[in-house]
Simulated scan of single mutants.
Amino acid sequence: MSPLSETVPPLAEGRWLWRRLFVFLTAAGLLRLLERVLDRMDAATAARAADGVLMLLGLTVVLYLVAPTAQQLIAFVAQLRRGMRA
C-alpha cells in the first residue's frame, strides 16, 4: 500500500454504491422526463428537446465512467498540499 492511501481514510465512495445509485436514478429520471415531455410537444420542438436531454444523459454516463471518485479527489488534493509545503 502506498503511504498516501494509508493517510487518507477509506470513504463510502470507494465501494461505488452511491455513485452507481446516483447515475442509475438520474438516468431513469431523465428518460422518464424525456418520455413525458415528448408526449406534449410537436415534432420539431420534441426533436430539439430530445437532443438536449440525451446529451445531458450522455454527459452523466461519461462522468460516471471517467470522473474520479471522491476518494481519489481527496487523495489528489492531499498530495497537492504536500507538494506546496515542500
Score class of each variant (00 low, 15 high):
R19N: 12
A67G: 11
D51P: 00
A86I: 02
L21E: 02
T26N: 13
R20D: 09
F22M: 13
W18Q: 14
R15L: 15
M41A: 10
G58Y: 04
R32A: 12
A75W: 12
D51G: 02
R15T: 14
A75Y: 06
R40D: 09
T7P: 05
M84L: 11
Q72C: 00
D42A: 13
R19H: 10
A43N: 11
A75C: 14
A12F: 07
A49S: 05
L80T: 12
F24Q: 12
A70H: 04
L80P: 06
R32C: 02
R32S: 05
L73S: 11
G83V: 03
F22W: 15
M1S: 11
A50T: 04
P68T: 02
L54D: 01
A75S: 15
L56V: 08
L25W: 10
A27D: 12
S2Y: 07
S5K: 10
P10H: 03
Q71N: 01
L34V: 00
L80M: 13
L56Q: 06
L57R: 03
A28R: 02
P10Y: 03
W16M: 15
A44D: 14
A28E: 00
P68R: 08
E35N: 01
Y64N: 03
L57V: 07
S5Y: 12
E35F: 08
M1N: 07
G14T: 09
P68S: 07
V77C: 02
A67F: 15
M55R: 10
L4Q: 12
E6M: 05
E35M: 05
L59N: 08
L73A: 15
Q71S: 00
G29M: 00
A86M: 06
L31D: 01
Y64T: 00
L73Q: 08
Q79L: 09
V8I: 15
R36T: 09
T60H: 03
V53S: 00
V8N: 04
G29E: 04
A46M: 08
A44R: 10
A70M: 13
Q71T: 02
V66N: 03
R19G: 11
R85N: 10
Q79G: 07
V61G: 03
V8F: 08
V77R: 05
L54M: 04
L17K: 14
A70G: 07
S5Q: 13
T7H: 08
A43K: 12
A46F: 01
A86E: 14
R48T: 07
R32E: 09
S2Q: 09
Q79K: 14
F24L: 15
W16K: 11
P10W: 01
A67T: 08
M41G: 00
A47V: 02
L73P: 04
P10L: 01
L57C: 02
L25Q: 13
A70Y: 10
L65G: 11
D42E: 14
L73E: 13
A27P: 06
L54K: 03
F76Y: 13
E6K: 14
V53P: 05
T60E: 02
Q71A: 01
L59P: 00
A86T: 10
T45P: 01
A70V: 12
L38A: 13
L17S: 11
G14P: 09
V77W: 05
M84H: 00
R20Y: 08
A75D: 06
V77D: 07
T7L: 11
R19T: 07
D42G: 15
V23E: 08
G83L: 12
D39T: 05
E35R: 07
